[in-house]
Design a protein around this nucleic acid. Structure first.
Length: 139
DNA sequence: GCCAACGTTGGC
DNA sequence: GCCAACGTTGGC
């Protein structure tokens, strides 16, 4: 079981959209970055991830689960790009902002804090636990 | 809206 | 294979 973080601009695709898709989930299409794609290829069904709102909010708002492993991205014919499907699991009781993460002990090495431009990131088990607790949910 | 960081592209 | 030019992301 591994942990991840998915970034999305909430005015394009936000937590509420994700929740509306229910257990069927949604294809995490549109990623055109090798590092992010490779992270998705490493995902397995049942892996958990944070759902992060970039630009607007800049905060982790909930937890998602990988419900389909990486397969061709339906929004392109380019065979280089594929993606997983994710479904919403539960919302945070309170959103955890980027600002908070930056000053939280234990999160100094978090990719979110150190590589602002990577849209699909790995999260360590320690980071997972810390951020879940900050968000008011059990890891 | 600006700009820093970073990734990609393409000429050589 | 190098690197300059360019494009994109995302925090501020």
């Amino acid at each position: 079981m591994s942990y991840w973080l998915f970034k999305s601009e909430p005015d394009v695709w936000g937590w509420d959209h994700q929740v509306a898709k229910g257990d069927e989930g949604e294809e995490w299409h549109g990623v055109r970055n090798y590092q992010a794609r490779n992270n998705m290829r490493a995902m397995r069904v049942g892996d958990l991830g944070f759902f992060y709102h970039s630009n607007i909010g800049k905060e982790v708002v909930g937890i998602v689960e990988v419900c389909r492993e990486s397969s061709p991205d339906s929004t392109t014919d380019d065979p280089r790009w594929d993606c997983v499907w994710i479904k919403a699991v539960r919302p945070f009781k309170r959103a955890v902002s980027l600002e908070e993460c930056k000053v939280q002990p234990g999160l100094e090495g978090m990719v979110l804090v150190n590589n602002t431009r990577l849209s699909v990131q790995p999260v360590s088990p320690e980071e997972w636990e810390i951020v879940c607790r900050m968000g008011g949910v059990e890891p």
